[in-house]
Computed example of a mutant assay.
Amino acid sequence: MSTEERRPEPVKAVPVRHVGRWIGGAIVLALAALAVRSIIVNPNFHWELVGPYLFDTRIANGLVTTLLLTVGSMAIGIIGGIVLAIMRLSPNPVLSGAAGVYIWLFRGTPLITQLIFWANLGALYPTFGLGIPFGPEFVTWQTTATITVPVAALLGLGLNEAAYMAEIVRAGISSVDEGQNEAAGALGMTRGKTLRRIVLPQAMRVIIPPTGNQVISMLKTTSLVVVIGYTELTVVAQQIYAQNYKVIPLLVVTAIWYLVCTSVLTVFQGFIERKFSQSTIQTTGWASRMFGFRFGGGKDRQ
């Protein structure tokens, strides 16, 4: 028998037909088409009013206020979160306990309650000042004149966010192998320098994604400042449709601007994640060459 006669015939592969996937996709597309058509042809949306109000000066001012409030609150939250996370991880029981109480208090009470509390702080403390503890005060201020509505909004949002950021930063720092701290200490690096040069660059891969989510969440959470009378995007829209009774078009305008802002923040978050991933690889390589071994459980170099 020749070689050609002994050679088996090639197997004809028959692709698996995923009927369920095609049916499910068709159902989803049909429902999406119905939803889009309903949104477009429904006259109650008043699309002819959405365009003019989308770039209305009042809406633009409210949007700027929302963005500034988001940036300011997140700045307070991130800085406070880093400080609280370092305190929480401190071997000093007083610092660790104080940070734990802060996180427990601000995470355990509603944000609206905290906003109202800061807006009415003057009823509890009419004045506050600087001086010797349990002694005379050198400088005093009126609380109601200092803690204005914008300041109360920043304090309420920022200090509440610091409690959540503290846990995010703590988780990121804890994700770095403890052996790297020990190696840095053996080389005489201080705890602060080790944190800045070695731990935080690697912890950023864990910290950045939830921080981006917190920024996006803060953008929408700023609408809660309506309870203390502060005017931002949602409040401006409410004020406008309270006058002209065009509720739906104004809500659509607000939703569009929130979607635009969150989309931009999502793209920016992805860029930062890629940037820190690259710098983490470079930092790890530099530290590996310096310490003579690979981080993350790698073997010593020969």
Rank of each mutant, 00 (worst) to 15 (best):
P210A: 09
I59P: 13
V215A: 09
L187P: 09
G292K: 09
V226S: 15
R58I: 11
V227G: 09
G77H: 01
V267H: 08
A119R: 15
G156Q: 01
V11L: 13
A98I: 12
T194F: 12
I59G: 13
V206C: 03
W118G: 14
L67D: 07
F55M: 14
I59T: 11
E9P: 00
R21P: 00
R301T: 02
T280K: 13
I82N: 03
W104H: 01
L259N: 12
G97W: 05
L265C: 02
T66C: 12
L233V: 08
A163S: 07
K12S: 14
F295S: 11
W286N: 09
K246R: 12
V94R: 03
P201H: 04
G296N: 02
G158H: 02
R6Y: 00
V149G: 07
L265S: 00
G122F: 12
F128H: 00
A32H: 03
P110I: 06
V11H: 10
I79C: 06
W257L: 08
L95H: 15
T231S: 11
E182P: 13
A153P: 08
G131L: 00
V16I: 15
I116M: 15
G135R: 02
A33S: 14
V267Y: 12
P136K: 10
F138W: 07
F291L: 11
G24N: 10
I147Y: 04
V50D: 10
N160I: 05
E232K: 08
W141C: 09
L68I: 11
G192Y: 04
P43D: 05
I248E: 06
